[in-house]
Design a protein around this nucleic acid. Structure first.
Length: 907
RNA sequence: GGGCAGAUAGCUCAGGUGGUCCAGAGCGCUUGCCUUACAAGCAAGAGGUCGGGAGUUCGACUCUCCCUCUGCCCA
């Protein structure tokens, strides 16, 4: 394409923009359910419409893209469904903030106009995150993007509500729910976060009606006494046995309430006697129901005391607590007070403590839905990765509670329930249908429920709505549903296993009779250098876009994957001042390495030419056969790692293969090899190298799509409309694997390594070539080293001579032993032998220790008797090899000692 | 309070089914090098009683139990 652009450093920016644009222009990501190819599909967890890209997304999205791209190259018909979530409360809060800046409340604006504002806001800011994701190169099918408030999704939501309502699985009920006084809305259990708070535990005196004393009652919420309906003790509690059944007076009121006995009371807590306030506590609510107690409510939805509180009415709840406590003290009804730390629920969205509150809400009966959803996971029809999440899932599913789906906000799917003036109500698609269902005349006015549905009520239908199920309210079958459901993989954060994953399983089983996905990958949680979750408020959640701009999308993708082991959190040091992530250098350096390997091959191709066929197998040298065998192994291993969702191992494997095997050894060998070849051979070797390198690009494409696409075009004559993105995956022939070549080459590597070690002791400049003597013991080694002398000489570097076992060697030399074979490096005359003497002595001591350990084992009769014979045999071999090496080193030591003493005497 | 995960080199982490190279990588550090692609690099090196204790075993970083600490989820 444009080979003059092969610079010495990889510059990602322009390349990434160019290729993403080209992929989109050629419509490479659009799925065709009718292609007849085997399908592979993924549902993208829809980011919130209010969302901005953070590193959790980067990891999540990259993981999905890897699997999508990998399967695309394997020949699957791939479909990745993107979308956006309307994020009810989060979005409404954002827009209300905007209004607040203008000095307007949503109530002043009214429902209609407020919703218009939200839609305007959505048009302006919604989906920015999808734009941001494009910078990562994700290959999802943009033509299928769905917004959870789209007409089609909303229709399906309404139909599902009506179906469940008709089946009796959705009901309206009075329940204690989590109420946010600030949001004026119910919250789901999942929207409440618990934090330890130190408050005061008060012991109050509830006077016995008959006189003669008090029952001491412990509470942290004195302001709710106005709604007390009983005092409860444990049935076995001796202290209170005599008062059970009697009546006590609620302090500050004229009311008398019974003392009851209930198993739920913990006798060890406080005084063992609790006030029962069913209107303001979930446990009390249940106790109240068990004992048929009345229900009193003394707080308003705004969190202020109501008329039940008499003179305290109108006070805000925490102010009320102080005032009530004061008054109790004045009246001598406060026995004692002590600090008490307990967990208090806070609203995740608005931050204030939630108020347990009795109100009319809509619920989904979960038990019947949970049962089959648990089974498909326990039976392994859906597999979790890592597997341990199954236990958490099971625990939750077995203890599941009904799902409160109504929210007292305006932005969301309005509950399709209509109320008649006579108080009757029904779910319906329209007021007309509601009148019909209720048997009312057309002119009877109806009122629609003002509440909207929990955001997750649309999310749990995601596998269905993305594929257009009931998009028009009637059509149950679509091409996408037929081909792409069940999807193959879901990649998501573990914290939404209950909000989302579990409920999608329930909904898809319920409405489609199938599982929504086969594998679920729970991603790592990204943390900063201190182990804290990344969050905007902590200032430790950098914007990925500048980091992508700085290091390149491929580098960021690669680093994230490289650092993310399955089931383990990821720690990344973040520079809080510059918002930089230094570990991104891993990926950037690797990309640069890959780039330069390509540049090297390109330069060599220019120099030697490239033949149309690679060099014949018979003409291949050991380094070439070795790297081909290693490539075959890397290919097999990467596929296995990806299949097992060990993505970090996939990245590490390729990193090590490219860097250590391909660049450090094969390319270094190739430099020498090309010089030693005829022109024809050299062109064939270039061809061979290029084909191998192309295989590497194919292996790396799923994780580093841009740089691999660019190199794929730079190094070959490609037509404009050819893309690595849709090319076939790499392959390797069976015959490429050769254990013998791998063994022989690793032997050469060991010799080169030892020689380099000796060489570095001399501190020689690179041009200088010392003499290297190798005294080989077997003819195989003599043969191997003799025929690869050129490789040793180039890579050490040195002048090498291979000798047989009994040949003399120069007395002044540094010594090493590689698997029983001695090597000698001859230093220049001024080298101080004492350094070498000391080194030899250390080496001897080290081997001596090892020998002793081995011998200790071999002298242990229990070991000889019980250990498997193969293990014993190996120990014997070790013993022998240590002894041999020691003998040689001792011999050297003696020679050198003699030499150095004679040198001393000369001096 | 219930459940789960983890504790290995200064930092971040690898080390299925116990013996295999005196425990590995990257970064950082030390030394020498701008050596025919890459200083975002090359070569060599230092650095760990594998959280503590007990047990099982001929043998434990690897299995069991207890303890300590860290984090997460749920109530």
């Amino acid at each position: 394409m444009q080979q003059e652009g092969f610079s010495s450093a990889y510059t990602p920016g322009e390349i990434e923009r160019r290729w993403y644009e080209a992929w989109l222009r050629h419509d490479l990501f659009r799925a065709n359910p009718d292609s007849g190819r085997p399908p592979y599909s993924i549902l993208m967890p829809p980011p919130n419409v209010t969302g901005v890209l953070h590193f959790g997304h980067v990891l999540n999205i990259t993981l999905q893209d890897i699997y999508i791209r990998w399967h695309r190259m394997q020949g699957y018909e791939v479909c990745w469904f993107p979308g956006i979530d309307h994020a009810g409360i989060a979005t409404q809060v954002k827009v209300e903030q905007e209004l607040a800046a203008e000095g307007v409340t949503r109530h002043q604006l009214g429902r209609e106009r407020f919703l218009e504002r939200v839609w305007q806001w959505k048009e302006r800011y919604g989906g920015i995150i999808l734009e941001q994701m494009r910078a990562l190169g994700i290959s999802c099918d943009w033509s299928r993007t769905l917004f959870t408030m789209d007409e089609s999704a909303s229709t399906a939501v309404r139909e599902v509500f009506i179906r469940l309502y008709d089946e009796g699985l959705i009901y309206r009920g009075k329940r204690i729910i989590n109420w946010s006084p600030r949001l004026q809305s119910a919250l789901s259990d999942e929207e409440v976060v618990y934090r330890p708070v130190t408050e005061e535990l008060l012991v109050l005196r509830y006077a016995l009606e008959e006189g003669g004393g008090f029952v001491p009652v412990a509470t942290v919420r004195p302001e709710t006494i106005f709604a007390d309906v009983a005092v409860a003790v444990h049935p076995d509690d001796e202290r209170y046995r005599s008062v059970v059944g009697k009546r006590v007076r609620v302090p500050l009121t004229e009311r008398f309430v019974p003392v009851i006995a209930d198993e739920a009371v913990d006798p060890a807590f406080g005084t063992g006697a609790l006030k029962i306030t069913p209107g303001h506590d979930a446990v009390d609510f249940e106790i109240g129901q068990r004992h048929g107690l009345p229900l009193l409510v003394c707080l308003t939805p705004e969190g202020r005391l109501n008329e039940l509180a008499g003179p305290f009415a109108g006070l805000e709840r925490f102010e009320a607590r102080r005032r009530v406590t004061e008054r109790l003290q004045e009246l001598g009804l406060l026995e004692r007070r002590e600090p008490y730390t307990h967990n208090v629920g806070f609203s995740e969205r608005s931050g204030e403590p939630v108020e347990p509150y009795v109100s009319n809400q809509w619920f989904v009966r979960m038990k019947p839905l949970a049962e089959p959803a648990l089974q498909v996971v326990l039976e392994g029809k859906i597999r979790f990765h890592p597997e341990h999440w199954v236990r958490t899932y099971e625990h939750w599913m077995r203890n599941i509670r009904d799902w409160c789906i109504s929210r007292q906000i305006w932005w969301g799917h309005r509950i399709p329930v209509y109320y008649a003036p006579d108080g009757r109500y029904t779910a319906a698609r329209s007021p007309e249908e509601a009148r019909q269902r209720l048997g009312l005349d057309p002119e009877v006015p109806l009122e629609q429920d003002p509440d909207v549905l929990d955001t997750w009520f649309s999310s749990w239908l995601w596998p269905l709505t993305t594929m257009r199920w009931l998009a028009d309210g009637v059509t149950e079958e679509t091409p996408d549903l037929r081909v792409f459901l069940p999807t193959d993989l879901l990649v998501t954060a573990p914290e939404i296993i209950f909000f989302w994953v579990a409920r999608m399983i329930m909904a898809t089983l319920k409405f489609r009779g199938t599982i929504p996905f086969r594998d679920v990958y729970f991603t790592s949680v990204i943390r900063d250098g201190y182990g804290r979750k990344l969050s905007k408020s902590l200032g430790n959640s950098p914007d990925p876009l500048p980091i992508i701009a700085k290091y390149g999308a491929d580098a960021v993708r690669f680093t994230m994957i490289y650092l993310s082991p399955l089931g383990q959190d990821v720690r990344m040091t973040i520079d809080e001042r510059t918002q930089d992530i230094p570990s991104m250098e891993i990926g950037r350096n690797f990309a640069n390495k890959l780039w330069n390997a390509g540049r090297f091959l390109w330069l060599k191709s220019q120099q030697y030419g490239v033949s149309s066929k690679p060099i014949a197998d018979e003409a291949l040298t050991l380094p070439e056969r070795w790297i081909r065998s290693r490539f075959a192994a890397a290919l097999r291993a990467t596929e296995a790692e990806l299949r097992h969702y060990h993505v970090n191992d996939y990245a590490r494997l390729l990193y090590n293969f490219v860097w250590n095997d391909f660049c450090d050894w094969y390319l270094e060998a190739l430099k020498v090899l090309l010089q030693r070849s005829t022109a024809e051979e050299a062109a064939g070797r270039c061809r061979f190298a290029l084909e191998l390198y192309e295989g590497i690009l194919r292996l790396l494409h799923p994780v580093m799509p841009f740089i691999t696409e660019e190199l794929w075009h730079l190094l070959w004559e490609r037509r404009e409309e050819e893309f690595l993105c849709v090319a076939a995956a790499a392959t390797a022939a069976e015959a490429w694997h050769s254990a013998e070549d791998e063994e022989n080459f690793s032997l050469l590597q060991a010799f080169i390594g030892e020689a380099r070690r000796l060489r570095s002791l001399l501190g020689l400049p690179p041009q200088e070539c010392p003499q290297l003597f190798i005294r080989a013991v077997t003819s195989e080694i003599i043969q191997l080293l003799g025929s690869h002398r050129w490789l040793l000489e180039a890579l050490v570097p040195c002048h090498a001579t291979v000798l047989d076992a009994h040949s003399p060697v120069p007395p002044r030399a540094l010594t090493g032993v590689v698997r029983g074979t001695e090597i000698f490096l001859v230093p220049s005359s001024d080298y101080d032998l004492t350094t070498e003497l000391e080194r030899l002595q250390r080496e001897i001591a080290r081997l001596q220790r090892l020998l002793e350990e081995t011998q200790a084992k071999l002298q242990n009769p229990a070991f000889l008797q019980r250990a498997p014979s193969a293990v014993v045999e190996r120990e014997r071999e070790k013993e022998q090899s240590f002894q041999q090496s020691l003998a040689k080193l001792h011999e050297r030591l003696a020679t050198l000692q003699l030499l150095s003493s004679s040198e001393d005497s000369h001096a």
